[in-house]
Design a protein around this nucleic acid. Sequence first.
DNA 1: TGAAATGTTGGGGCG
DNA 2: ACGCCCCAACATTTC
Length: 478
Amino acid sequence: MNAASLVWFRLDLRLEDHAALCAAAERGGGVAALFVLPPEGDQAWIGGAASRWWLHHSLATLSKTIAKLGGKLILRKGDPAEQVAQTARQCGADTVFCHHIIDPAEASRLNRVRAALEKTGACLRVFSPNLLADTGTIMNRSGEPFKVFTPFHKAARQLNVADPVPAPARLDRPPQAVPSLSLEDLELLPRHDWAAGLREHWAPGEAGARRRLHSFLGSAVAQYPEGRDLPGIEGTSRLSPHLHFGEISARTLYHETVLRTETAGKEGGLRGGEAWLRQLHWREFAHHLLFHYPHLVGAPMQAEFAAFPWRENGKLLEAWRRGRTGYPMVDAGMRELWHTGWMHNRVRMIVASFLVKHLLQPWPDGAAWFTDTLVDADLANNTLGWQWTAGCGPDAAPYFRVFNPSLQGARFDPDAAYVRRWVPELAGMTAKQIHSPGGPPASGHYPVPVVEHAGARQRALMAYAELRQNRNSRKEES
DNA sequence: TGAAATGTTGGGGCG
DNA sequence: ACGCCCCAACATTTC
């Protein structure tokens, strides 16, 4: 008979397709489940305040489903090395199982956990992160990571995606009971309850994730290639927060999508399914890149961007955060984010371009706000997304690509339903007025534009030209 | 996973 | 009938 096992949950808050849990259950000898809330300096992989709200509810549902199988979720907070080792010792586990996460601090963190476990003679077994393919398996011919999406995607599509494994039928508790904090002790919920909008829009947890997936594959996926760009309708899957916390695995998403769009025979299903899987591969791309280049979290991939002539301005940054820039699409997006903890992807590109190019605010400031307010705040996606926008990342948007918020609005929110939903000051205006190139006519309490579009665009182009000039002259010197 | 500036074409109004 | 101009509409190029 094997000794007990401890499953250390992190960004894998599910029971289906959970390799670590299956491996633990197969050993017999009892399984304990653990979640450790790390100290504040080690929470980059969780996200910010909105993500902590999500995490609270996700842990609540995970705790219930584990209990249904006969097990118990132990909650702790503090240094993971200490907590994991202590819990393992208390429940008599000789092996700890977990999944990798993509985070620059991961390697040293796991080394510390491993070292702490070895002192008591226990060992750590680490399974693949929540991705379609293992990091390190998608490389170009010279054995380097792909830095451009299209060839990455082409190579990634060739690979077989492993089949999901079913949840264990039951979880026997280890012989020794182990003390646990209560969920409230983790203090994940905000002290001042601003989460009403989040509660209204989301159902954290594995069951909620499966419902979203099935409702998406049942309808919106067929129109996904066009619908995904229209923030006024529910054209996207809205699975990102579920995926971030691993409430559903990427492999499950892949296989269910292939199954339901290829065999359902639904009009447009196949095309929509492929377009959607392409987006799943963007996530894959970001995670593989961050795995290979962990320094990307704080530093631009292209070194010369360290000298970018930002014009840091707290008032402009605050106007952007609060959705008071005077640009309807930008403000609608920022208010949707504030209210729901989520923003439509098309609009994320618009607001990010606006902050970086129109306002010349440093992209890490934008990334930090997204981290704090998004329920799907994800280190890899967020970092690579902002670097893409700023033009300083691998496979970056070209420096001259400046989104025009009015044009984007006219194109992707033609009836202005999205703007009117989130910017009530403009509810009485026509779509033409809302998306007019000069901005909506002055009225009521809606702010006048904080910058003028054409001028701001020129200023951004000059800033980027200056950067290129510096780079070129430095080349000549050397 | 843009937008603006510039270039080209073709239809229609008009002298 | 003809040439001229205007200007959409579309294509190309530049940022």
